Computed example of a mutant assay.
Amino acid sequence: MDYQLITEQAELDSFVNAISQAETLAIDTEFMRRRTLYPEIALLQIFDGQHLGLIDPLQPLDFTQLWQLLKCEQVLKVLHSPSEDIEVFQNFAGFVPAPLFDTQFALQLLGQGNCVGFAAMVNSRLNIEIDKSESRTNWLQRPLRESQLAYAAADVAHLLPCYNELVTQIRAQGWFDLVIAESQLLSKKRAHQIPDEQLYREVKGAWQLAPRDLAILKELAMWRRQKAQRKNLALNFVLKEANMVEIAKRRPGSLNSMRNIPGVEPMEVNRSGKEILACIERGKAMPEQSLPSRVTRLMDYRGYKQTAKDIKQKIATVAKQTGIPADVFASKKQINQLISWHWKYDEHEREQLLAPDLLQPWRFDYVREALADWVLTSNESR
């Protein structure tokens, strides 16, 4: 397999010039996510069918010309299961390549299973077994070994022929635009951030807490994310989610009493104990009329099970009519999104959140009539 390791500006400029006329580019990234909130990019792989470049982003390179190419609407970018790659691009490049074709979603559309891994796709489509020995390698180490480089090159070298086969089937069904729209939605979801004041509602176990405890949890959740972003630390390295709930329940008044809470680690107290105590005090000082309402689990709402069943049946009918698998339209999680949108949030809160997937393009175009009772306005997608 021929590839070029790119570490110099002249090499990058030459490579971008060589692929600049391509209509389709296979793309992958290698990154590390050890204790950081944001992924650390370690390698960028691009293949146009003739030229395969492994670009080292740890070198002082000017990516301006490459970014212009990856932003070009006339060039299709192909990735497999790009959720994390999208996040890598958002944080490293400041944008997401578009239009984007996700081969994993294409396989799902064709009824070949959810979350088909890259190796499984290559095996079934190309009858090639991928060597997985480097899958858990340290991509930030330098120099990269020959085996690492070959592994990274194979990701895009095999991706393009898989795409060529899949896109023929997708176009035959008239679903090409659906794949593109799904990737656009994925990018939008990755870029969206739940407002600070609503973070506490997403914490597992929040439903157990009384309003005053929720006020403390709300302060803790806002502080934790802000510190994680400021320090580029994974959220659970700032404070574990389960520990936030316990701290909100017990409301410790000192560092020593905080250390006695089961599950709370000494490191959490040593690093952030004073900040945690300040969150507790702010929550305790919140006026009674400003306290959050209790959080109700969706399963505890009256009529939830029957409602979810009814929506699932309506979607199954649309799936049968269109030939699109029902699980592509909506998983259980996506059905719950729709119900929560109506039952758990008021109009002001909905304005701050992304509409559920079933009310977003492309799905809404298909389910609009079947789910007419679940449409609040004529323009819910955002």
Results as ranks from 00 to 15, higher is better:
A152H: 04
I216C: 12
V375A: 12
W207A: 15
E380Y: 10
G113S: 11
A150F: 07
S378M: 05
E268N: 05
I19T: 01
L76R: 07
C115A: 13
S340R: 15
M1I: 06
Q108H: 14
P195E: 12
H80L: 11
V122N: 02
R271Q: 14
L166S: 07
W67Y: 13
L235A: 05
A181Q: 12
S378V: 08
T24A: 02
V367G: 02
V295W: 05
Q21K: 10
S378E: 15
E369A: 11
W175C: 03
V295L: 06
K227D: 05
E380A: 13
G111K: 07
L69F: 08
V203C: 10
N379Q: 15
G49D: 01
A172N: 10
Q173S: 10
Q104C: 06
Q108C: 07
K218M: 11
Q45E: 10
G53Q: 00
L79H: 05
E202Q: 15
E73C: 01
R212H: 11
Q169G: 00
D48M: 00
W175K: 02
K333P: 01
V75G: 02
P97A: 08
Q65G: 00
A191T: 12
L52W: 00
I46F: 04
A191V: 06
N256S: 15
F89L: 07
E369V: 10
V328N: 03
L70E: 09
V328K: 07
L79V: 14
V16R: 02
A153F: 05
L220D: 10
P211Y: 05
A106M: 03
I19A: 00
S135A: 14
C115H: 09
I324V: 12
G53F: 04
A215Q: 08
E219T: 06
L70S: 08
Q59H: 07
P60S: 11
V264Q: 09
S331K: 08
V375K: 10
P161T: 04
S133C: 06
I19W: 00
E23W: 00
P99Y: 07
R142A: 05
Q59Y: 01
L61Y: 03
A206C: 12
R145Y: 01
Q90R: 15
S293V: 13
E281M: 14
F329P: 07
D300P: 08
R350G: 12
I180R: 06
S293Y: 12
Q321C: 05
A150P: 02
F176R: 01
R136S: 10
L185H: 10
A285E: 15
Q184S: 10
E165C: 03
N123H: 13
A153Y: 00
L109Y: 03
L140Y: 03
A152K: 06
L166A: 07
A355N: 09
A154S: 13
S340T: 05
S187C: 15
N336K: 10
L353K: 09
V88R: 08
K305E: 14
D2E: 06
R225N: 08
C162G: 06
Q141C: 04
A119W: 06
D62H: 11
M121E: 03
A42D: 03
F47E: 00
P287H: 12
G117I: 04
R171V: 08
G111E: 06
L166F: 03
A308W: 08
Q289V: 15
E349T: 15
